[in-house]
Write a protein that binds this DNA or RNA. Structure first.
Length: 646
RNA sequence: GCCAGCGUAGCUCAAUCGGAAGAGCAACUGACUUGUAAUCAGUAGGUUGCCAGUUCGAUUCUGGCCGCUGGCUCCA
């Protein structure tokens, strides 16, 4: 007998080797009927698996993330089965459940087009309708090898070879057999045909390795109810409307030109205005935090990049050198070396430290053409790049300070949900410095994170070549996470550049250095901002805050006067004096997502007022110009997301 | 870079089987002077991404290049 502890703390004795389904039946038939899978000792297990040791058991019913994961995993198998039925010669790769759906990587002789998805989906409906029981079997690796050899599944054989346990599990439904850990539904009929949808096909290297064959990946999504699927598809559509590439065009913020080059951004007046607002805020905050603002060149001699190690460790991201008077100059991929040169222009006392230097430094990095993506992934970008040079005893406090600064900065822009990562030492010769120093530095970063109690994940091997880092990512509307803030510990560059300070003891010491970017790059950050707000920026960020709309031409002079008063008060205001009707001007302003529409006609001109319309469509009535300016300015000062307060 | 798809007017999109490139919006001109999401009329706008090839004839078929989209990989 073994002892099973249930979530309520009660303990049941069950026969060793009883399946989890049997255990669930012992607890209650209704529970067993609804069960999808179980969580046993913290891990998900299939209902058909045997309970062999004492442990904590939670029976998972529908409605939660684990149940969805199980259902999607089964959907992935059903899809693979359908593809195998329709297209002969298919070999299975891997097919997991993912955050909002599932995929299966398949090696099939003919390229799939999106049109093929319909007939695969048709076949899937048949498999679901047939309600094939899903059977879980355990066998030795040797048996499994024979099985998959017989079926010509070479990728499965490769996976099998990497499994350490001697016993593996396979799942079968009808003629379909897969090597799989599970858990799965009890039968294919557990899926709702109207809650499953195939979404796209894409190429994917086998095991993510570009030296290996490229398989075809089919993405799909599956939900418990048709309603959930509809809602998900609706969400995708809404997300597409917020796409910063579309909004960038619609709102006339930026452009990218084929004749200029991929991944290179031209900021139009409104986009540049937005950028400037961000920069002005950024400078003001850095002044408050005790940073010194610097500015450094865009290119530098090979000597500099050799000293920094970039030519050794970062070359694949750097552009070819240009010859200037016989010397090789590189366009800078990072700002740090020049900031270090600034530090080194004179001696420093321990009393001066920490020195906090920052600049909005534009860098250029080679990115493979396939990865470029609007503003989020570009080849030229401006990093809000800072470096803190400090004594070893100051580093913990500095890292904590930067971390707080970073979270506060992102919050000011309305970002609240972050994914935080601790990225550790890169593997396989991609890192400089002794392992002990990496350990020490990683511990310092971990301590800063722990001090805040915010949850974080470890990104094993994700550090920069010169040190470990804390990365903060924000999610865009399509659910993709984009890295903004990064805090990087560096014990390499101070060494390479022989940076020193004079300590209390009169001797030279080596300072520590922390690289940090809070917004990440202005390009990416603005891309995230656009999507976050769907182009309807908070008043303080809006490129145009108010448009004055004269009703007839005779109101143009008054409108111009109002706009000028607004601009004198620091607000960004324009007049729409086109020869359109007022309705048309309002529509244009709505499409531009301008926070305030100030309609002026005879009544307003008479009263020295404006008729205020908000971008949410609300008519806020007549407001004296002075009162409008005061309220709008207080909203700007507070950086409030609120559009108006009466 | 690799796999798949796509590229027609400033924007959004049509064009049958390979047979005279079109619409709406935007722009421009004129009229209208309007009270909370599109006033009316007219004008102009094209090397169909670029370069080759097949063909009597190519937006359409083929090849190369450039760019974009979704992924893989990588990163701010």
């Amino acid at each position: 007998m073994i002892r099973i502890t249930l979530p309520d703390g009660s303990v049941r004795e069950v026969k060793r080797g009883a399946s989890f389904l049997e255990v669930a039946e012992g607890i209650g038939p209704r529970l067993a009927k609804a069960a999808v899978c179980v969580r046993f000792n913290g891990e998900l297990h299939d209902l058909r698996e045997a309970a062999l040791v004492d442990g904590d058991l939670a029976v998972i019913g529908p409605g939660g993330p684990e149940a969805l994961q199980t259902l999607r995993h089964t959907a992935s198998h059903v899809m693979a089965q359908a593809v195998k039925r329709r297209f002969p010669g298919v070999q299975l790769g891997i097919g997991p459940a993912i955050e909002e759906g599932f995929y299966y990587d398949l090696d099939l002789p003919t390229p799939l087009a999106e049109e093929d998805l319909a007939q695969i989906a048709e076949e899937m409906r048949g498999i679901i309708a047939a309600d094939l029981p899903i059977v879980r079997r355990e066998m030795t690796k040797a048996e499994a090898r024979t099985l998959f050899e017989g079926r010509g599944e070479t990728y499965k054989l490769e996976l099998l070879a990497d499994i350490e346990d001697d016993v593996v599990s396979i799942f079968e439904q009808g003629e379909f057999v897969d090597l799989c850990r599970g858990p799965h539904l009890r039968s294919t009929g557990g899926l709702r045909p109207d809650a499953v949808k195939l979404l796209s096909v894409a190429g994917a290297y086998w095991r993510g390795d570009e030296a290996r064959p490229m398989l075809q990946r089919i993405y799909g999504t599956a939900w418990e109810r048709a309603k959930d699927l509809e809602q998900y598809l609706w969400r995708l559509e809404e997300a597409a409307k917020r796409d910063h590439r579309k909004l960038g065009k619609d709102l006339d913020l930026f452009s990218i030109h084929e004749e200029g080059g991929a991944g290179l951004i031209c900021w139009h007046p409104k986009g540049a205005r937005l950028r400037r607002t961000i920069e002005e805020f950024w400078y003001a905050e850095h002044d408050r935090q005790g940073y010194d603002i610097v500015a450094t060149p865009h290119i530098g001699k090979s000597q500099l990049w050799a000293t920094s190690g970039h030519l050794d460790f970062y070359r694949e991201n750097m552009y070819s050198p240009m010859d200037i008077d016989g010397a090789d100059y590189y366009v800078k991929p990072m700002n740090c070396p020049y900031q270090i040169l600034i530090y080194k222009t004179r001696g420093h006392s321990y009393r001066e430290l920490p020195i906090r230097m920052a600049e909005l430094g534009t860098v250029y990095r080679y990115e493979r053409s396939g990865v470029l993506h609007g503003l989020l992934r570009v080849r030229g970008f401006t990093i809000d790049d800072g470096h803190i040079i400090c004594r070893p005893d100051q580093v913990d406090a500095e890292i904590r300070g930067v971390y707080e600064f970073s979270v506060n900065m992102l919050s000011a822009f309305g970002f609240r949900d972050f994914d935080i990562y601790l990225a550790t030492r890169p593997h396989a010769g991609k890192a400089v410095g002794e392992p002990e120093r990496w350990e020490q530095a990683t511990a310092a970063l971990r301590a800063a994170l722990d001090a805040h109690g915010l949850p974080y994940k470890v990104d094993d091997g994700g550090g920069a070549f010169y040190g470990p880092k804390i990365d903060i990512k924000v999610r865009d509307t399509l659910g993709r996470a984009w890295q903004c803030s990064t805090i990087q510990f560096d014990f390499n560059l101070p060494e390479r550049f022989d940076m020193t300070y004079i300590g209390e003891d009169g001797a030279e010491h080596r300072p520590y250095m922390v690289h940090r970017a809070l917004l990440g790059s202005l390009e990416r950050f603005i891309g995230c901002l656009i999507e976050h707000y769907g182009g309807a920026f908070p008043v303080w960020l809006a490129p145009v805050q108010a448009v004055v709309i004269p009703i007839a031409d005779r109101h143009n002079a008054y409108a111009a006067d109002v706009a000028q008063r607004l601009r004198n008060a620091g607000l960004r205001a324009v007049v729409d004096d086109t020869s359109e009707r007022m309705n048309s001007k309002i529509r244009a302003a709505q499409l531009d997502k301008i926070p305030y529409m100030l309609v002026v006609g005879d009544r307003e001109a008479e009263a020295g007022a404006v008729a205020l319309r908000l971008r949410n469509g609300e008519d806020a009535g007549a407001v004296p110009v002075k009162a409008f300016i005061d309220t709008a300015n207080s909203i700007v000062r507070s950086k409030s997301a609120e559009n108006w307060q009466a």
